[in-house]
Design a binder for these strands. Structure first.
Lengths: 126, 126
DNA sequence: ATCTGGCAACTACAAATGTAGTGAACAGGG
DNA sequence: CCCTGTTCACTACATTTGTAGTTGCCAGAT
């Protein structure tokens, strides 16, 4: 596995689009982002280029010869990396306080709570 | 309340020291950090100054007239802000997937799991 | 009165980030 | 065949962050 590159906040939005559907050309990505981030196409292109340099994306070509972008790292792996760094930074690496924090500060539905409890039970018996 | 300022990773270490015990002078903070981060005193001073500019710290004076630093924002509030931004960025604002992620990827002790379950139960009846 | 060590205030400077603009090149419409 | 819009590859530039160095000043030790 390639080491997970550091992905900045803006870059993360770009990755999301591509994790959602790939490959896409620069202008497709721009269009996908348009509703949320109102970025100039060149801004998106810059982010794409940087992500390629970082090894987070690889490029290809579509039928009409236009360059396309595809994630080179799995979303799950990036989430794990980001999560770990967040856990360390803000909660000193202790997962329980983090879980307590989010369990308390989020309005979870009864169903979600049940699912989480079930998940915790599985952890117990393993 | 002052809006919570953006606190970078290095700055966060400094804040931790002061949340832990305040007020402290610049050299005291440096000493407290010495074991973990091996920063030059000037580095710490720069971070302190930036944190004051950002409104995260306020200054005072100790008995001998040396400048001291004290948090101007509560740790809890900063944790909340950071957590929210992390939640939005990495989990698209959805708390459940985040909780699932950390519940699965952390090695929690049986006790911790029980505590969490209890906490979730309380959420259910409220 | 002088030297010295600590503290404060500035200044430095490269890398990363956010956010584009410019110019060249190519391809399809007229 | 030429203009025009799309794509690409560079360049731009202010901020933020990480990590100090430099200099001036003051108070206490000699």
């Amino acid at each position: 596995m390639p080491a997970i590159p550091d992905i900045s906040e803006s870059e993360w939005s770009v990755m999301e689009v591509l994790w959602d559907s790939a490959p896409q050309t620069a202008s497709e990505v721009t269009k996908s982002l348009r509703p949320t981030m109102n970025w100039a196409e060149n801004t998106v292109r810059t982010l794409l280029t940087r992500l390629v340099e970082k090894g987070a994306l690889k490029t290809g070509e579509n039928a009409s010869g236009t360059r396309t972008f595809t994630p080179a790292v799995k979303r799950e792996a990036c989430v794990r990396a980001e999560s770990q760094s967040f856990l360390d930074r803000v909660f000193g690496g202790a997962a329980k306080p983090l879980l307590v924090h989010f369990a308390q500060n989020s309005k979870l539905s009864a169903d979600e709570i049940k699912e989480l409890k079930k998940l915790l039970d599985q952890q117990l018996n393993s």
